[in-house]
Write a protein that binds this DNA or RNA. Structure first.
Lengths: 219, 219
DNA sequence: TAGATTGTTAATCGATTAACAATC
DNA sequence: TAGATTGTTAATCGATTAACAATC
């Protein structure tokens, strides 16, 4: 295990994991860094460099064992140490995550969702109970919650984030688009800014048809 | 306008846009690169460098005009040239986007959604008609569609992507988690891998409590 | 053994940061 | 004018790529 792993490497780990899972499902047993690079659009040397941050999983002259690689990367990401999570806000997006998103494959166990709507409080969705938001605080006292998934209206965000941070939640997966003040103590915030993603796509798309500076294909 | 703008700069533009929109709403008229850097966690020199890719919007000794900056960045992203979009798959996630996501502020006009479910085909949501997926092909012939938002089941992805690409759709905003073969001709694919985001958060979270190598605060 | 492919060091490339002259 | 702050060039830093000896 080398010194500090750069954020670039960390952000590539989930991609590796996905690819290895896929390869394993296709019953591919071993793969070389160059073959993998071709599949993922990375240089072979970068792949070897990346894996070496954690201490080389390969075998010279042979390549990498897919199953082992998948497990090793999973281990680095900590998939074996399950985190608990709650969803705050069971609107369309919250419900989409509860019923379609595979928390388990991220090493996360979804234990409850919270909402204010009378119509759905007390029901359960895909095995996840939907509780009254008024009970959130006491719930946090009785249950260890590592991650809160923020899918509530923008207006409720700031206050709820403070409450969560104060009650021991350590990570916020933030879908609200509201910037959360980092000064909530030690809490880590992972923002999902869908608009950033669409804007970026739009930028490249517009550049493709119009103004083509001089035949250069923008990408 | 300088040569080729790096992807790093492009990916920062939406963040700038968000910040300027916020500042404008707070009636801030001008801001210096150093104040902006403080707010956004960037170095002042990087901000000046970024803006200079497009030809400096500032005024020496004064700073940057917020409104102008917002409009300029919006212009670079092409918000004035509206793109059309359709949503493919009106399940929870599709409906969440249709009713809550602000397409307009990304310069995108959502013109229709498609689904196979009898129960919802023919209805409309937040002003967007939900049409029968069987009509998709003819719809694409009659309407210019720039972007398709892919929120359908994984199994339907590959085939639909091919259909869309063949009928002139130029960008795919892909929420399915399925890797789409890039060899669909000229189509650009923007993948939204929510699991990557959660896995990354989990990595840092797990690193924080456990093994703390030597008091170094991992981030 | 010969061939393949890693682990690892060195070279290159690009992105970020610092510095400062230009100028409002 | 003096002060502030940009635009822009130069220096630094880090990440990617190439190269190659180690070794399976």
């Amino acid at each position: 295990m080398k010194y500090r792993i750069s954020a670039n490497v960390i952000r590539r780990l989930p991609r590796y994991l996905r690819r290895f899972t896929l390869l394993d499902r296709q019953n591919v047993e071993k793969i070389s860094s160059s073959a993998l690079g071709e599949q993922m659009g990375l240089k072979a040397s970068q792949i070897r460099q990346d894996f070496n941050c954690f201490g080389g999983f390969g075998q010279q002259g042979y390549g990498y064992n897919v199953k082992q690689l998948r497990d090793d990367v999973g281990g680095i990401l900590g998939l074996d140490r399950t985190l608990t999570a709650v969803v705050i806000g069971a609107g369309n997006l919250g419900r989409a995550l509860i019923s379609n998103f595979d928390f388990a494959s991220c090493g996360v166990k979804l234990i409850a969702a919270f909402d204010t709507s009378r119509a759905i409080v007390g029901t359960s969705l895909h095995g996840t109970p939907i509780l009254d938001a008024a009970e959130l605080e006491s719930f946090l006292e009785e249950n260890r919650v590592d991650v809160a998934v923020l899918t509530m209206p923008r207006s409720a965000t700031a206050g709820t984030a403070r409450l969560l941070a104060g009650r021991g939640v350590r990570g916020l997966w933030n879908f609200t688009g509201v910037d959360i003040d980092a000064d909530l103590g030690d809490v880590l915030v992972e923002d999902v800014h869908l608009s950033d993603s669409l804007l970026t796509l739009g930028y490249y798309l517009r550049g493709k048809t119009e103004q083509q500076p001089d035949g250069a294909d923008n990408v």
